[in-house]
Design a protein around this nucleic acid. Sequence first.
DNA 1: GATGAAATCGTCTACGTAAACGTTTTTACT
DNA 2: AGTAAAAACGTTTACGTAGACGATTTCATC
Lengths: 326, 326
Amino acid sequence: MSNISICDVAKHAGVSIATVSHVINNTRSVKEETRNLVLNSIQELNYSPNTAARSFKTGKRNLIAFIVPDISNPFFATLIEEVEMVIAKEALHLLVVNTKETKEREITNLRFLANGGVDGFLLASTFDNYAEMEDVIPKHIPVVLVDRRPAGAPYDSVIVANYQAVYSSVEYLIRKGHTRIGYITGLPRITTTAERLEAYQDAMEANNLSTEGFIRTGTSMSALVSENLDILLAQDCSALIVSNNMMAIQAMMLLDQRGIRVPQDIELIGYMDSAQPQYGTQYMSLIRQPVVDMGRTAGQRLIERLKNQDIPLRETLLRADFIPVH
Amino acid sequence: MSNISICDVAKHAGVSIATVSHVINNTRSVKEETRNLVLNSIQELNYSPNTAARSFKTGKRNLIAFIVPDISNPFFATLIEEVEMVIAKEALHLLVVNTKETKEREITNLRFLANGGVDGFLLASTFDNYAEMEDVIPKHIPVVLVDRRPAGAPYDSVIVANYQAVYSSVEYLIRKGHTRIGYITGLPRITTTAERLEAYQDAMEANNLSTEGFIRTGTSMSALVSENLDILLAQDCSALIVSNNMMAIQAMMLLDQRGIRVPQDIELIGYMDSAQPQYGTQYMSLIRQPVVDMGRTAGQRLIERLKNQDIPLRETLLRADFIPVH
DNA sequence: GATGAAATCGTCTACGTAAACGTTTTTACT
DNA sequence: AGTAAAAACGTTTACGTAGACGATTTCATC
């Protein structure tokens, strides 16, 4: 039953509620004998402290929220899993909020959860600019940015060196003799999309290659991937960079349907965004995101900040490896 | 800031806290003029109600926990996504707990969250028997079982007609002339594993086919899949049933590595456990799990039970379609 | 056994909110 | 204007817990 309070335990054990509370929380010394009395009563009554009352009193909820744009993307699923493991060790729980890449859902949830809802946020934001979300997040609540970093946000961040990874991958293709290299971006407006695209453009330019007609903006919506693919094929691209894992796998499937072989007929660069290997990726060169490391680090960062608000800002940049297809 | 209470708003607006509370919750009529006064004050002070205090007072947390064995499995990720969507419409939030197929983690979390932690549970349990978990869950708290149904549990459930789907798939293979049909199970002890295996055995037996040496017990651990695969190949199987999506994809990759073509050299039956199509599954016959439907239904069930504890038990059995490779 | 220090424990308040209960003001109708 | 009914609003309490503060008991030492 849940209607058993600390008060009932106190009565049953013949002590005060203060003693019971201190036994539970180990907050002052209690005689061995008394402690056992209390512990026995707790067991007998099957008492467990009321979480809500506790949070109310202490102001701590032992709860952190991870705001992700897309739960069913394996990238974020893995991230969630890693964060959960780190968090759980501290007896914290994880609230998962799926914004579905919607600014409005992000705002609503931040606002709702900020005031006493959770102790801190892990945020993979849909915003590219802090100004838009500034009002919603109270200053006192810890936030750690994961994977995406809206410009100007005064928070710890754990992100990936996207620029460098894409730049290397373009150079790799060029070294292999490709000159017509197509690029399919992810959702515009997201910080990672911009970084990756910029790297592609810079690398092409540095090698005096044109990007004219080679850049397509996409989402992982299947129809759009298909359309973008056909346009780039029509442009006679000999290599394609597809800027996230879900679209890359889709590109594989679509090329397969068209009877175009990878990597013999066209070379593909995709992403490895999850801990589990995916069938189909063995034929691509891959940019391997440090998902596991990112999840753990982000969780750790938040825990540290929960314990001490005054540590200086930390921006962590994790390397993404480029793995050429053999 | 978060240190703004209903009290401050009341003072600022020159009314009582009761009025503020009633404006916020729409719980009694307030003069238009006063209401605006209050609303303006709320806005000016950027007040939002303290969630913790509110939960404490009302006993409602607007929070439900979804206990899953493996977040990074796309099956559960999709389930989570669907549940979250249904839940969000009711202004409820979703706590995701990853048990990693561990009984102990399941127990710990159930116990911790039950007393005031959440309003209800969605549970994809690692237990196959209710007796083992009975003590931990208070009687008054609503639980809906998802995908797996521990024997004897007195809860609403939303599960899949596993038996029927596997039975049809075996019949399909037999009709095509296969007699040596291998079967790789999922984790033993899980309810779905047992149902599926039983169907395979019954269907084989009904057709006078032996299963001797054709059954391998597995997990999605890559090395184990590989070992099981080799053993079944050595048994000269012409068709394989692999009883979940992750293992099926792995089997594909391993067969690919060994130069064995699917479905020309060996026929494969796998699972489609997610809303997104996966590369590799186009070469298998598939048992399509009704993931989306299951998530929505389960969420709905729980919401209904939160509103009314007294409705009779409902056990929902969803059909899984068998889709032969063309 | 007297003393002070240390150990042990109890009383009571406060947290922010919702709502029961009570009071005042407004309205409708004679 | 007088009345009752209805509308509007304020005062107060209670929820379960943690911990400040204060009270009592135990203990070591003379």
